[in-house]
């Protein structure tokens, strides 16, 4: 078990190293931030001076090496645009993203769990059809479109909810619903839970559980569910990381939510290398961490893993 954990940690480190290299290069492929930042009438001398101050005149491998060495010492550099320390930006923005992500996940799971289970239990019923339709729609509707639609109805036409920004509970409603309904958390869990529940309900041990005289509720919610959850847990962890990463960039931008997603969007627009790198690394770390947590949860759910 210790060897396994060690192996996983090395693997995680290698993943993050690869990610940082890729994002480092991709960011620089977009162009030079100074083209956007410098006043239009600046002289080549001023240009070179600024380039030197930011360290952009060094060869790429030197820049990358410096970035790596500083990163492991928790120094993520300063924003090229605002000059503020990147760590401070993240500290300020990340809680907002987490709060939005967690509330969206809670809402999505609160819908997905009963829907997936009941769809399997009442296979072929109206509810089953509705669940599957929901899953397909959730998967295929783009979040920016749903977000804008909700905005124009609830904020625009009806004037019921704020159009953007963070504040009270009211501000959470639209972005949470958008994030929960679109993307994979809802649709993926519904479909996965339904199919894994169907498999399990068809199994011999469920037959035996019924033959013991247990009520259908005990059979479904105790014997079947705990087994059906095993494959689902993997994806919940993974989807959550996806939700924080991909979906939040779009949804936070649409709703002007002050989280890391919008920070990433702004940083990309301004070619703010240190900020882009830091946000992507943060999200990658989350993804890796989510996978580790999932594996630990696995052991709790599945005794066959626990003893290996």
């Amino acid at each position: 078990m210790q060897r396994y954990i060690l192996f996983r940690l090395v693997q995680a480190g290698a993943t993050l190293l690869a990610v940082s290299l890729v994002v480092f290069i991709l960011a620089r492929l977009t162009g030079n931030p100074l083209d956007l930042l410098m006043p239009i009438d600046s002289t080549p001398e001023q240009y070179a001076q600024e380039s030197q101050r930011l360290g952009l005149d060094k060869p790429l491998y030197v820049q990358f090496g410096r970035f790596l060495v500083n990163s492991v010492q928790a120094d993520l550099g300063k924003s090229i645009r605002t000059g503020r320390p990147v760590l401070e930006l993240l500290r300020q923005r990340f809680p907002n993203t987490m709060k939005l992500g967690l509330s969206a996940m809670a809402l999505a799971l609160a819908i997905a769990f009963p829907l997936g289970i009941l769809a399997a239990v009442r296979r072929g019923s109206f509810l089953d059809g509705a669940a599957r339709t929901t899953a397909v729609f959730g998967q295929s509707l783009p979040s920016f479109w749903v977000g804008i639609l909700l905005l124009s109805v609830f904020a625009g036409t009806l004037h019921l909810l704020p159009a953007g920004g963070a504040g009270g509970l009211k501000h959470y409603l639209l972005p949470t619903v958008t994030l929960a309904l679109t993307g994979f958390m809802l649709s993926g869990v519904v479909r996965l839970l339904r199919s894994s529940m169907l498999d399990v309900l068809d199994s011999e041990y469920v037959k035996l559980a019924r033959a013991k005289g247990l009520s259908e509720n005990v059979v479904v919610w105790k014997h079947a569910l705990k087994n059906a959850l095993i494959p689902v847990v993997t994806f919940v962890g993974f989807y959550f990381a996806l939700l924080l990463g991909g979906a939040s960039v779009v949804v936070e931008t649409v709703f002007a939510w002050p989280g890391v997603g919008r920070l990433a969007y702004e940083a990309v627009m301004w070619r703010d290398y240190p900020v882009v790198q830091a946000v992507v690394l943060l999200l990658a770390t989350l993804l890796v961490a989510a996978n580790l947590v999932v594996d630990i949860l696995y052991a709790y759910l599945d005794p066959r893993v626990r003893y290996r």
């Binding site: 035996l208 705990k226 087994n227």
Partner: peptide, 21 residues
């Protein structure tokens, strides 16, 4: 009646026990 008056032993011992209990 099930499990109390009438019981059953299924064919495959590898799949008829619930792995998580």
């Amino acid at each position: 009646y099930r499990g109390r008056h009438i019981s059953i032993i299924l064919q495959d011992p590898m799949t008829s026990l619930n792995p998580v209990f």
